[in-house]
């Protein structure tokens, strides 16, 4: 069975106030070597056993484009893992 591990983040150039706030907080805590923080959403999607790797990949892309990300402001990446 295949499982998709999906990360959705903001596109470059879109201000992510949450990431900026975290970066600022890290600065306040005294961490001096942090150049950039990116925040995002993480999803794990478990497919049933009828899907082979190719099907799982095309379904992953479909749900990312359709609902898990908003292409106006976000991008996504994923990896597929074989699980028992």
């Amino acid at each position: 069975m295949w499982k998709a591990k999906i990360v959705v983040t903001y596109k470059p150039g879109i201000l992510d106030p949450e990431a900026k706030t975290i970066q600022h907080a890290l600065g306040n805590l005294g961490y001096r070597h942090i150049q950039e923080v990116e925040a995002g959403r993480y999803f794990e999607v478990q497919f049933d056993k009828t899907l082979n790797k190719e099907d799982a990949e095309s379904l992953t892309k479909e749900i990312c484009d359709k609902i898990l990300s908003n292409p106006v402001i976000q991008k996504y990446r994923y990896e597929l893992k074989e699980v028992d």
Binding site: I14, L15, D16, P17, E18, T21, N70, V72, I73
Partner: peptide
């Protein structure tokens, strides 16, 4: 989100 209008709404600047 439906696409009837263009663009997106993100978190307020001051969070």
């Amino acid at each position: 989100e439906t696409g009837l209008l263009p663009g997106a709404l993100i978190a307020n600047d001051g969070l």
